[in-house]
């Protein structure tokens, strides 16, 4: 058993010819923190359900922890922990009861289950509320309990489907901290799906952007920004007249310039490398910008860019 995931050309078509996942391939190494980033309905949750044996793939090869999800679903389930988008909590049971119940189903003896429940309650900060009905918990507490249930059997691989959706910033940070710790300290492989760019950027070693059931870009956060996002050099002038002159002065076949009133934006692959050139050209014309900024691309830009490209591609079809 290992902590890796291998997916080759996974396809999931629902009744009525709805193609939720259209030929997705990726590899996740043991101990890696991998994020699936995409808008609503992109196929993130369907992919998670395929990998966690909740759905059967229409076609393709999916291996989790070295086991084929179609042939060995029981072995896959033993190796993974899954926190779905919707928490899976019976409101009629107490926090402690739910954890003990979960542990028993993973083969723990009564005594072991008790001990594990105590550890986990401590870990997610629910010790004081352990003997209250979980139905009375707040949204944040339910999320934390759900995460604790996911961790009962110390899975090698953790699937987290939008784990922080609907949480306030404090609870979101608490969940982030815990999953970061699991990845760094315990070497747990993490497959996270999210709509939040900030979340993927902050947490993941590697990101795939998924849209309309297909992966449209993959790389480390830095790589994605570098290959897809462009730096923006922004020049601000006091007078619009100067801005117009400046735009002519700095024009180059190597990059694009745009002017909006007093501001000029230069989009380029590497902002700092053209900076000296731009300043020299402006100096020659005796133009002096009031402000000069270089903005690195954000993952937002990348995300918008790749999902837009796909939209344009679609309209051609």
């Amino acid at each position: 058993m290992n902590g890796a995931i291998h997916v080759e050309n996974a396809v999931k078509t629902f009744k009525g010819d709805i193609k939720a996942v259209r030929g997705v391939s990726f590899d996740i190494a043991e101990g890696e923190f991998f994020a699936f980033l995409g808008p609503n309905g992109a196929g993130k949750s369907t992919t998670v359900q395929l990998l966690t044996t909740l759905l059967k793939p229409t076609s393709g090869k999916l291996e989790v922890a070295g086991y084929d999800v179609s042939k060995d679903p029981e072995k896959v389930r033993l190796s993974i922990g899954v926190a779905l988008q919707e928490t899976g909590i019976d409101p009629d049971l107490k926090g402690r009861e739910l954890l003990e119940f979960q542990a028993r189903l993973f083969g723990f003896t009564k005594k072991e289950a008790k001990k594990r429940a105590d550890e986990l309650l401590e870990l997610v900060g629910l010790t004081e509320d352990a003997d209250r009905l979980s139905g009375k918990y707040s949204g944040g507490m339910r999320r934390r309990l759900d995460l604790a249930m996911t961790l009962v059997h110390q899975p090698k691989i953790l699937f987290l489907d939008e784990p922080t959706t609907g949480l306030d910033p404090a609870n979101r940070k608490a969940i982030w901290r815990e999953i970061k710790r699991l990845n760094k300290e315990e070497g747990t492989t993490i497959f996270l799906t999210t709509q939040y760019l900030e979340e993927a950027d902050q947490l993941a070693d590697r990101i795939s952007i998924i849209n309309k059931g297909q992966i449209v870009a993959t790389g480390t956060p830095a790589e994605l920004k570098r290959t897809l996002g462009l730096d923006a050099v922004v020049l601000q002038f006091d007078e619009e007249e100067d801005a117009v002159k400046a735009q002519q002065a700095v024009a180059s076949p190597d990059y694009q310039t745009e002017r909006v009133k007093n501001d000029i934006t230069i989009l380029t692959e590497n902002g700092t490398s053209i900076l000296a050139d731009v300043i020299r050209k402006l100096d020659e014309q005796n133009l002096h910008p009031a402000q000069l900024n270089v903005k690195p691309p954000s993952l937002d830009d990348v995300f918008i860019q790749v999902t837009n490209e796909q939209k344009e591609g679609d309209s051609i079809e």
Binding site: T52, T53, I89, D90, G107
Partner: peptide, 16 residues
């Protein structure tokens, strides 16, 4: 009720 509150999915994700 188990289906509605997502608990049933959690049960299916156990090895039982």
């Amino acid at each position: 009720k188990d289906l509605d509150n997502g608990f049933f999915s959690r049960l299916l994700l156990t090895p039982s």
